[in-house]
Amino acid sequence: MVHGEEQWTSGAGMAKMSRRTFLSRATTTMVGGIGALMGIPTVAYLVSPAKARGGLGVDRLPLGPISKFPVGEPTLFKAAIERKTGWVTQTEELAFYVFTEDGRNFSAMSNICTHLGCRVRWITDDEQFFCPCHSATFNKNGTVASGPPPRALDQFELLVEDEQLFVVGKVEA
């Protein structure tokens, strides 16, 4: 094996590199190339679905005529949406607490606890949302009153058009 090395140590015109070293480097480089050609798409392929962020899945989600929302008390509304995940389209139910003081200005928040995702419910007597999982409470406007949740309940952007209330998207924190 040494034989190859000796024979090629003094490669003339080229940079001072033995044929052996050259071949080794070239080989390593090409192996790296093969690795990259296969590896990069692999990673892209694997992480691709992670790019999809849950949104509403639709432009606007009708909740109904504004006249039907009780004033002064958060009320739970449910709406079904079709959501496509991968190649499967599923019907999902979304639930919002809709709250209005005056019947004109509305706010909507998710009923999903920001701690670990249990469903919160409005307790009329306490004037608070209560999460049964780790006994967290939220105020009427969704801010945390007590317990482990890290942030207020998610808010949704609303739109009133022709006396109809629509949810149009999440309010990004």
Binding site: P41, T42, A44, Y45, V47, S48, P49, K51, G86, W87, V88
Partner: peptide
């Protein structure tokens, strides 16, 4: 039910799916 859809999903929606 799913085979065709999943393959089509791979081909058309996943990044580099067409390549793989």
């Amino acid at each position: 039910q799913d085979a065709y859809n999943s393959v089509s999903f791979i081909t058309n929606e996943i990044t580099a799916g067409w390549l793989i």
